[in-house]
Lab assay of single mutants.
Amino acid sequence: RNRTTFSTFQLEELEKVFQKTHYPDVYAREQLALRTDLTEARVQVWFQNRRAKWRK
C-alpha cells in the first residue's frame, strides 16, 4: 500500500477533531471518514500517528 497523501482540507478536519479529543470513538471516526473521503482505517491510523507526534 502506498503512503496516503492528505489534502489541506482533510488535515484541517482531522486536526479540528484532534483538538477536541485525542481518542475519537468509532462513530466520530466514521463521520470524519465520510466527510474527508477517507476510510475509517486511515482515520484511525492518522490518530495513532498524531498522538505519537503529540507525545514527543
Rank of each mutant, 00 (worst) to 15 (best):
Q31S: 11
E30D: 05
D25Y: 02
P24Y: 02
F47K: 01
R42K: 10
R1L: 11
A52T: 08
E13D: 00
T4L: 14
A28C: 13
L11T: 14
T5R: 08
A28G: 05
V26T: 14
Q10F: 00
S7M: 05
T36C: 13
F6Q: 08
P24C: 01
T8D: 10
T5C: 15
E13A: 04
A52K: 11
F9N: 08
R29C: 10
A28M: 08
Y23C: 04
L11Y: 03
N2G: 08
W54N: 06
E40C: 07
T8F: 10
D25K: 00
F18T: 02
K53C: 08
F6C: 05
H22D: 04
K20V: 12
Q31L: 07
T5L: 11
Q44W: 09
N2R: 06
Q44A: 13
H22L: 04
Q31V: 06
F9Q: 13
E15C: 01
Q44I: 06
T39L: 02
N49S: 09
A41K: 08
H22P: 13
S7N: 10
Y27N: 09
Q31Y: 04
Q10R: 02
R50G: 01
K53I: 13
R51W: 01
K20Y: 06
R42D: 10
P24T: 01
N2P: 07
K16R: 14
A28F: 09
T36V: 12
K16Y: 05
A41I: 12
T36L: 12
T39E: 10
L38S: 13
A41E: 14
R51A: 03
E30A: 13
Y27F: 13
R55A: 14
Q31K: 11
Q31C: 13
R29H: 02
E12Q: 11
V17K: 02
V45E: 13
Y23F: 09
T5K: 15
F47N: 03
R35F: 05
K56W: 02
A28L: 10
K20H: 06
A41C: 04
E13G: 01
W54H: 14
A28P: 01
A52R: 09
S7K: 11
D25M: 00
L34G: 12
E40S: 08
E30V: 11
R3G: 13
K16N: 08
T21A: 05
F9D: 12
F18M: 05
E12W: 05
Y27M: 14
R55N: 11
D25H: 15
T8S: 11
L38W: 02
R3W: 09
F47E: 02
